[in-house]
C-alpha cells in the first residue's frame, strides 16, 4: 500500500477538503509543488489556482480551487490555509482606505473629547428600559 498523507484545506469561512491523499500538487508561489508523504516541513505561500490531489483507490485527481493562501507541510499532514478572497497589497490598501473613509464620513458630527458622561447616561437609559421590560414581563 502506498504511503498516505492527511490533507486539510480550510478557509476562514468553511472546511473545503479533508481526507487522505497519496500525492498532492499545489500552485506554490515559486512554481508547482508536488508533495509526497513524508515531505520535509515546509511553509510557503500558494498562488490562486487548482490543487490536485491523488486520492487512494481513485484514478482521477481530485481538483480543489483556492484563491491563494498558506501551505504548511509536515511529514504526515498537509494543511492549506486558503484565503477567501484574492489578496494583493494594493487591494488590501484600498479596503483599508474605504473603511477609513466610511468612518470619516459618518463621523462629521464628532466631538473632540470623549464624552463619557453623556455616553453613560445613554447606556443607563437603555439599561433602565431593559429592566423595565423585564419587570413588566414578570408582572404578567
Amino acid at each position: 500500500m502506498p504511503l498516505r498523507v492527511h490533507v486539510d484545506v480550510v478557509s476562514a469561512e468553511e472546511l473545503i477538503f479533508s481526507g487522505e491523499a497519496e500525492f498532492a500538487v499545489f500552485p506554490g508561489e515559486a512554481g508547482e509543488l508536488g508533495i509526497y508523504p513524508r515531505h520535509t516541513p515546509l511553509l510557503t505561500r500558494v498562488k490562486p489556482g487548482a490543487i490536485r490531489l491523488k486520492i487512494p483507490d481513485r484514478n482521477e485527481y481530485e481538483l480543489v480551487y483556492v484563491s491563494g493562501g498558506i501551505l504548511e507541510v509536515q511529514p504526515t499532514l498537509i494543511t492549506l490555509l486558503a484565503d477567501t478572497a484574492i489578496r494583493a497589497k494594493s487591494l488590501d490598501e484600498a479596503e483599508a482606505l474605504k473603511a477609513k473613509q466610511q468612518a470619516e464620513e459618518a463621523a462629521k458630527l464628532q466631538q473632540t473629547d470623549v464624552n463619557y458622561a453623556a455616553a453613560e447616561a445613554e447606556l443607563a437609559k437603555s439599561i433602565a428600559q431593559l429592566q423595565t421590560i423585564k419587570k413588566g414581563r414578570g408582572g404578567h
Binding site: 469561512e13 484565503d83 473603511a99 477609513k100 468612518a103 458630527l109 473632540t112 464624552n115 463619557y116 455616553a119
Partner: peptide
C-alpha cells in the same frame, strides 16, 4: 461617535449584512 471616541475605521450594515465576510 456620540461618545466622541476617535474612530479610525468603520464597517456598517451595507458592508456586511447577515454574513460575516472575510474580504469586507
Amino acid at each position: 461617535a456620540r461618545a466622541g471616541a476617535t474612530i479610525v475605521s468603520h464597517l456598517s450594515g451595507s458592508g456586511l449584512g447577515d454574513t460575516p465576510r472575510m474580504d469586507k
